[in-house]
Every structure is written in structure tokens, then in C-alpha cells.
């Protein structure tokens, strides 16, 4: 027996979302290769670096939308998208880092080490990437099974990573903080929702014995 909408989720929604996940990368790749009339402007290195970072953060926040979506709609099939979206976030963030190391700084280890140690926004961004690594590595079904309850606890790190990502962005801009503030606001909303739900559950649990008695 299949759950309601499972076919729709697996064979329609998932491929569509996958295409959406890869679209920004395809756009940047086309721009870098000068294909299809895509232009990355006068400073393509900066454009690619910033785009990869921004899409990494976008997909992190989109991943964090899945649980609220499930709770709001009651449709559990949303969960089928979560791993793919999370791995997409990791893909862009790792790409952002590798592009910074290999292209933006042309592999100059001296500069990179100095950046990571001396510049707080880079230190934070790098920490976020390091914390994301174990999550990507334990994203398989096998790892979920092996880790059991600990898997969920480990994967709560994603909240920390998202917060680090937002601060990394905020500290990086020169003066116009409107866009990073938008991300901070979105993250606050997503975490606030969880906190509210959590409090709700706790108070239900506390009330439950009395309800039974009555």
C-alpha cells in the first residue's frame, strides 16, 4: 500500500525540485563558459562567488521550510524532498568555499589561512561549512538507521549552520544590510515556528494526565 500522494511526490515533485536545485548552478556554469547569452557582468569571479554563497543560504532556509510545510499541510510527502534540498545547500556552500579557495584567492594558502583566522566573517563561514560536513556525510538511509535517535540530535546542527550563514552574510556587506537582514528575518521565523510548536507539545504533554483523569 502506498501513502496518499506518494507517486506524485516521487515521480513529479521530486524531479521538478531537483531541476530547480540545479538551475542556479547551470546558470552560473553557462555564464562562466559564455554560453546561451548569460552574462555575469564585469566581475564574474565576484558574481559567481556571491551567487554560490547566496544559493547555499537559500537552500538551507528552503530545507528548513519542509517541517513547517508538513505540519501546516499535513502532507507527509514533503519529507521526501528534505534530504535532496539539504544536500543541494551543501553542494552550493562547498562550491562557494572551493571557488573562494581555488579561483578567488587562486589557491594562495597564505592569504586563505590569514582570512580564516583573522577575519571573523570568514571564520564563521568556515565553521558553518565544517559543521555541515558531518550532516552531509550522515545523510544516507544507512546512517540514519545506524544513528537512530542520535541522528536527529546531530542534524539539529543545521540550525546553528543557518545562523552562522546569516551572520557570515551580514558581516560581509559594506553598509547596505537590508538583504542579509531579510535572511535573518526568515531564519527567525523558521526557528520561531519550531520553538512555538515545541512549547505547544510540552504544554500538551503537561496537560495530558489531567485530561486523562477527567
Amino acid at each position: 500500500m502506498t501513502a496518499p500522494g506518494e507517486g506524485l511526490a516521487r515521480f513529479v515533485l521530486k524531479p521538478l525540485v531537483l531541476a530547480g536545485c540545479l538551475a542556479p548552478f547551470a546558470w552560473l556554469a553557462a555564464g562562466a563558459a559564455g554560453l546561451g547569452g548569460v552574462s555575469l557582468g564585469a566581475n564574474p569571479v565576484e558574481e559567481i562567488l556571491h551567487s554560490l554563497g547566496r544559493w547555499g543560504l537559500n537552500f538551507l532556509l528552503i530545507t528548513l521550510c519542509i517541517t513547517p510545510l508538513r505540519q501546516l499541510t499535513g502532507w507527509v510527502q514533503w519529507m521526501r524532498l528534505r534530504r535532496m534540498l539539504g544536500l543541494t545547500a551543501f553542494f552550493y556552500i562547498l562550491g562557494h568555499f572551493l571557488f573562494y579557495v581555488l579561483v578567488d584567492q587562486a589557491g594562495d594558502l597564505g592569504v586563505i589561512v590569514e582570512d580564516v583566522l583573522k577575519r571573523p566573517y570568514i571564520t564563521l563561514g568556515f565553521t558553518g561549512l565544517l559543521l555541515l560536513l558531518p550532516l552531509a556525510l550522515t545523510s544516507t538511509k544507512g546512517a540514519m538507521r545506524r544513528l537512530g535517535r542520535r541522528w536527529q540530535r546531530l542534524h539539529r546542527l543545521v540550525y546553528v549552520v543557518a545562523a552562522l550563514g546569516c551572520i557570515h552574510f551580514y558581516w560581509q556587506v559594506k553598509a547596505d544590510v537590508r538583504e542579509p537582514l531579510l535572511y535573518v528575518g526568515a531564519l527567525a521565523l523558521l526557528l520561531g515556528w519550531r520553538w512555538w510548536k515545541h512549547r505547544d507539545r510540552l504544554s500538551h504533554a503537561a496537560r495530558a494526565p489531567f485530561e486523562r483523569a477527567a
Binding site: 564585469a42 566581475n43 569571479v45 565576484e46 592569504v111 590569514e114 582570512d115
Partner: peptide, 10 residues
């Protein structure tokens, strides 16, 4: 927040 030792010539 960044090094000024080198620059990217557009």
C-alpha cells in the same frame, strides 16, 4: 575584512 595586498583588474 579583507586583504589589500592584491587586486583583481577587471
Amino acid at each position: 575584512r579583507w586583504s589589500q595586498k592584491r587586486e583583481r583588474r577587471i
